[in-house]
Design a binder for these strands. Structure first.
Lengths: 209, 209
DNA sequence: TGACGATGTATCGAGCCGATACATCGGAGC
DNA sequence: GCTCCGATGTATCGGCTCGATACATCGTCA
């Protein structure tokens, strides 16, 4: 998952670790918490070993902030890495639909073909619907067995689920009609286009078992 | 965190692993995903070693579902464990305010004194407010640098934050006026009492550094 | 009888986190 | 000019957690 995120960011531009972490924190939204260095650096090492990314001392004079001494290491994606990224983008498994996985995939939706986008949105919806049904079950059946606070927590969780399902429904509808995710409550005034990707050859894909 | 959850559940009744996991999954709500056995059993071992819980082959005839052979292991909390639980209940640190930690603490609010409840709710609110401000910052400053999908993800995240803050505000208000968390939209008809804990000696506590 | 799913205990490898250490840089304040 | 400090930056370690896996028992339905 983190692999996909890193390759995706390095596809946009070469970066060093610190920068990567910041981008990760801001772009990946609330679903995916900030990554720790204890995770990031070993992963970078792994990706380098696999040949997806390459490491280069930043002595290029285009980025002057480094004056000397201790080099900061700039990572860039390789040709193999780009291929790998394209593969990971369309691959979906169970982990695609949990909070972290969905957040990462969604972030790169503008580089994902429509068929895959739809598949991921629907998979996520299914996942949340299951969670929602579980909560409804509890609230209906075991409500008297639970204390007021626990109950309140379940209710809040249910509310969040229902809200997310509605959000996903909206996105799916938009997706099917080929629109970009226009601002929901920004009633008008926003151009809202530019990122709409071309229909693209939609090679059908199944979730891998 | 899991330690607190386990001790809390065993405080209610002795259980074996499987049961524990199910309770964990249902009661801890959406904030804390279901725990895996690869986590549960090592933790139980650790707690047993520390003396907080004890293990007993279920040959008591009060629980007859076991007929013979392979014993299922029933765990029960010890006196030391109860003490430990009471300590953990009032202790708050940074991890108290993340999704998992807050979920667990909230679940046991009916066994927590009011001062601690208030402290936890306010800490959680602060945490979510920070996240919210971060998102607003991004949405205000870097909106044009982000593509439509990433933007939509941020908006959805911001929405969830605002909603949770409002929820917390409500709980805090209720808490201050000494009420139990009454059903928000269950307009009437629900007794809503019974679990309101007595004011209790509110020994003031600070977050440990 | 035998297949199946729920119940139940347990471990392993790998990923991930928080804490920690160390080093450089630009600026604020003295 | 000096020192302190916070942001930038790289890197590792111990410990927790997960998903996968293995194994065994039970009731049930065909």
């Amino acid at each position: 998952m983190l692999e996909l995120a890193i390759l995706g960011l390095l596809q946009e531009a070469p970066m060093h670790g610190y920068e990567l972490r910041k981008e990760l924190a801001t772009k990946l939204g609330t679903l995916r918490a900030a990554i720790s260095y204890g995770t990031l650096y070993p992963t970078l090492k792994r990706l380098k070993l696999a040949g997806w990314i390459s490491e280069a001392e930043a002595n290029s004079d285009i980025i002057p902030p480094l004056t000397s001494k201790r080099g900061r290491v700039v990572y860039k994606i390789t040709a193999d890495g780009k291929e790998r990224f394209a593969d990971l983008l369309t691959q979906t498994g169970p982990e695609t639909y949990d909070d972290a996985g969905f957040g990462v995939h969604f972030t790169f939706f503008s580089r994902t073909d429509q068929a895959t986008r739809l598949r991921i949105l629907e998979g996520r919806r299914r996942r949340i619907e299951e969670r929602r049904e579980g909560l409804r079950e509890i609230l209906a059946r075991a409500a008297d067995r639970l204390d007021a606070y626990t109950l309140e927590l379940q209710r809040h969780g249910l509310d969040a689920c229902e809200r997310e399902v509605r959000w996903l429904e909206e996105l799916i509808t938009n997706e099917r009609s080929g629109r970009t995710p226009a601002g929901r409550n920004r009633a008008a005034g926003t151009p809202a286009a530019e990122t709409a990707p071309p229909p693209e050859t939609p090679r059908p894909h199944q979730d891998r078992p």
